[in-house]
Simulated scan of single mutants.
Amino acid sequence: MNAMIKQAVDHWRYVAPLLSKPENDQDFHALIEALDELLDIAGDDETHPLIGLIHQLGDLVSAYENEHLPMPKGDGRAALAFLMAQQGLSQSDLPEVAAQSVISEILSGKRQLNIRHIKALSERFNVSADTFF
């Protein structure tokens, strides 16, 4: 047995949980914690020796999210309401998008988002413009 395989065999019980597909929410959250820790260690260094492991964990997390936590279907109004609630914003906290009264009309369904609103919201919340279509 070559030295690299021997090391893998000797340490597999410690590494296997990091490379195994999460079977439940507990596994998923443990994987996220491990990924966060590894990201803290590697920082912005794309050449860090752990970057391959980080990518593997990211793929496992992403696959679990896509299977078990799909994005709900919605519309621009629902997306706006969600993002505002998530960030604790009121209608008057988005003056770069529109006046408070316009935001109110959009949220109540009396007015549609226009291209200018969508561009401003995309920049404000740092999300794709597709979020609001």
Rank of each mutant, 00 (worst) to 15 (best):
A8G: 07
D10A: 04
R13L: 10
R13D: 15
Y14R: 14
V15M: 12
A16D: 14
S20P: 07
P22M: 08
E23S: 09
N24K: 06
N24H: 08
N24E: 08
D25Q: 12
D27M: 11
D27L: 10
A30I: 14
I32S: 04
I32T: 11
E33Q: 15
E33S: 15
A34P: 12
D36Y: 03
L38Q: 06
L39H: 09
I41G: 05
G43I: 00
G43A: 01
T47K: 14
T47P: 05
P49H: 11
L50I: 14
L53D: 13
H55S: 13
Q56I: 05
Q56Y: 04
L57V: 08
G58P: 11
G58K: 10
D59G: 04
D59S: 09
L60N: 15
L60D: 11
S62N: 14
S62L: 10
A63R: 12
Y64R: 14
E65A: 06
E65D: 05
E67V: 06
E67I: 03
E67K: 10
H68E: 11
H68M: 11
L69R: 12
L69C: 09
K73H: 05
G74M: 00
A78W: 01
A78I: 03
A79W: 00
L80W: 01
F82S: 04
Q87E: 09
G88L: 08
G88K: 09
G88V: 07
S90C: 09
S90D: 14
D93M: 01
P95A: 01
P95N: 01
E96S: 06
V102T: 11
I103W: 00
L107Y: 10
L107N: 09
L107I: 07
S108E: 08
S108K: 08
R111P: 03
R111I: 11
R111W: 04
Q112M: 12
Q112Y: 08
Q112V: 10
L113N: 04
R116C: 05
R116L: 10
I118M: 02
A120M: 01
L121S: 02
F125R: 01
N126M: 01
